[in-house]
Amino acid sequence: SIKEIEKEEIIKVLKEVNFNKKLASEILGIPLRTLYKRLKEYGI
């Protein structure tokens, strides 16, 4: 599903940037606030 793909992509990017959420949100092209929402939604 799209949610699974998105979750995997978020985890992959977070690992690449050593869990720097600000940098991860910039790489993913989403606002930091949205990233936090996704992390909560996906239980990351």
Rank of each mutant, 00 (worst) to 15 (best):
S1F: 04
S1K: 02
S1T: 14
S1D: 13
S1C: 06
S1Y: 03
S1P: 14
S1M: 08
S1E: 14
I2W: 11
I2C: 06
I2P: 13
I2G: 13
I2S: 14
I2H: 13
I2D: 15
I2V: 14
K3H: 12
K3N: 14
K3G: 11
K3F: 10
K3L: 11
K3R: 12
K3V: 11
E4G: 09
E4W: 06
E4R: 06
E4S: 07
E4C: 07
E4T: 08
E4P: 09
E4A: 08
E4M: 06
E4H: 10
E4N: 10
I5C: 04
I5F: 13
I5M: 15
I5W: 14
I5T: 14
I5R: 14
I5K: 15
E6Q: 10
E6N: 11
E6G: 11
E6L: 10
E6P: 09
E6T: 13
E6I: 08
E6S: 13
K7L: 11
K7E: 05
K7R: 12
K7W: 08
K7V: 09
K7A: 08
K7Q: 07
K7G: 06
K7D: 07
E8P: 04
E8V: 10
E8N: 13
E8I: 12
E8F: 12
E8D: 12
E8Y: 13
E8L: 14
E8W: 13
E8H: 12
E8C: 07
E8T: 10
E9C: 06
E9V: 13
E9Q: 15
E9S: 13
E9Y: 14
E9P: 02
E9T: 14
E9K: 15
E9G: 10
I10Q: 01
I10H: 02
I10K: 00
I10F: 09
I10S: 02
I10G: 00
I10D: 01
I10E: 01
I10C: 02
I10N: 01
I11L: 14
I11H: 05
I11K: 07
I11A: 06
I11M: 13
I11V: 10
I11Q: 07
I11E: 08
I11W: 08
I11G: 03
I11Y: 09
K12Y: 07
K12S: 10
K12Q: 11
K12D: 04
K12C: 04
K12L: 08
K12M: 09
K12A: 12
K12R: 15
K12F: 07
V13G: 02
V13P: 00
V13C: 04
V13Y: 02
V13T: 09
V13D: 00
V13F: 03
V13W: 03
V13R: 03
V13I: 12
L14M: 13
L14R: 00
L14V: 03
L14Y: 06
L14F: 05
L14S: 01
L14A: 01
L14G: 00
L14P: 00
L14H: 01
K15A: 10
K15R: 14
K15Q: 11
K15E: 09
E16R: 12
E16V: 09
E16Q: 15
E16W: 09
E16A: 14
E16C: 03
V17G: 02
V17Y: 06
V17A: 11
V17R: 02
V17L: 07
V17N: 09
V17W: 04
V17S: 09
V17Q: 06
N18V: 04
N18Q: 10
N18K: 10
N18T: 04
N18L: 08
N18E: 08
N18S: 10
N18H: 10
N18G: 12
N18M: 10
N18W: 07
N18A: 12
F19T: 02
F19C: 03
F19K: 03
F19A: 04
F19G: 14
F19Q: 07
F19D: 06
F19N: 10
F19P: 02
F19R: 03
N20E: 04
N20F: 04
N20I: 05
N20V: 06
N20D: 14
N20R: 05
N20H: 07
N20Q: 05
N20C: 05
N20S: 07
N20Y: 05
K21Y: 15
K21A: 12
K21T: 13
K21G: 08
K21W: 09
K21D: 04
K21Q: 07
K21N: 08
K21H: 14
K21S: 08
K21M: 12
K21F: 12
K21P: 11
K22R: 13
K22V: 13
K22N: 07
K22D: 06
K22E: 09
K22P: 08
K22Y: 10
K22F: 10
K22T: 09
K22S: 08
L23H: 08
L23N: 05
L23S: 07
L23Y: 07
L23P: 01
A24H: 00
A24F: 01
A24G: 03
A24L: 03
A24W: 02
A24Q: 00
A24I: 02
A24N: 00
A24S: 03
A24Y: 01
A24K: 00
A24R: 00
A24E: 00
S25M: 03
S25V: 04
S25W: 01
S25N: 01
S25Y: 01
S25I: 03
S25T: 04
S25F: 01
S25C: 05
S25R: 02
S25D: 00
E26F: 11
E26M: 12
E26G: 08
E26S: 11
E26K: 13
E26P: 02
I27Y: 07
I27E: 04
I27T: 06
I27M: 11
I27H: 06
I27G: 02
I27D: 01
I27Q: 08
I27A: 08
I27N: 04
I27P: 00
I27R: 13
L28E: 00
L28D: 00
L28I: 05
L28Q: 01
L28K: 00
L28T: 02
L28V: 02
L28N: 00
G29W: 02
G29C: 04
G29Y: 02
G29M: 07
G29H: 06
G29N: 10
G29Q: 10
I30Y: 04
I30W: 08
I30E: 01
I30S: 01
I30N: 00
I30P: 00
I30G: 00
I30R: 01
I30T: 02
P31D: 14
P31V: 03
P31M: 04
P31I: 02
P31E: 08
P31W: 04
P31K: 08
P31Y: 02
P31H: 07
P31T: 14
L32N: 02
L32T: 04
L32F: 04
L32Y: 06
L32R: 03
L32S: 03
L32H: 02
L32P: 04
L32G: 02
L32A: 03
L32E: 05
L32M: 08
L32K: 03
R33G: 12
R33P: 09
R33T: 13
R33A: 15
R33C: 05
R33L: 14
R33D: 15
R33N: 13
T34V: 14
T34A: 11
T34G: 05
T34E: 15
T34S: 09
T34W: 07
T34L: 13
T34Q: 13
T34D: 15
L35W: 01
L35G: 00
L35R: 00
L35Y: 01
L35D: 00
L35I: 04
L35E: 00
L35S: 00
L35V: 02
Y36F: 10
Y36N: 15
Y36P: 01
Y36M: 15
Y36Q: 13
Y36R: 13
Y36D: 12
Y36C: 05
Y36V: 15
Y36K: 15
Y36W: 09
Y36A: 11
Y36S: 09
K37N: 11
K37V: 09
K37S: 09
K37R: 12
K37T: 08
K37H: 10
K37I: 11
K37M: 12
K37F: 07
K37Y: 08
R38E: 05
R38M: 15
R38Y: 15
R38K: 15
R38T: 10
R38I: 15
R38S: 07
R38A: 14
L39D: 00
L39M: 15
L39Y: 02
L39H: 01
L39R: 01
L39C: 05
L39P: 00
L39G: 01
L39N: 01
L39Q: 02
L39T: 02
L39A: 02
L39K: 01
L39I: 14
L39W: 03
K40R: 13
K40T: 09
K40S: 09
K40P: 02
K40C: 04
K40Y: 10
K40N: 09
K40G: 06
K40H: 14
K40W: 12
K40F: 11
E41A: 08
E41W: 06
E41Y: 07
E41N: 05
E41S: 06
E41K: 08
E41T: 05
Y42A: 05
Y42I: 10
Y42F: 13
Y42R: 01
Y42L: 15
Y42Q: 04
Y42V: 05
Y42N: 04
Y42M: 13
Y42K: 02
G43F: 07
G43Q: 10
G43K: 07
G43E: 09
G43S: 07
G43A: 08
G43D: 09
G43L: 07
I44D: 04
I44M: 09
I44K: 06
I44V: 08
I44F: 10
I44S: 05
I44T: 05
I44L: 11
I44H: 06
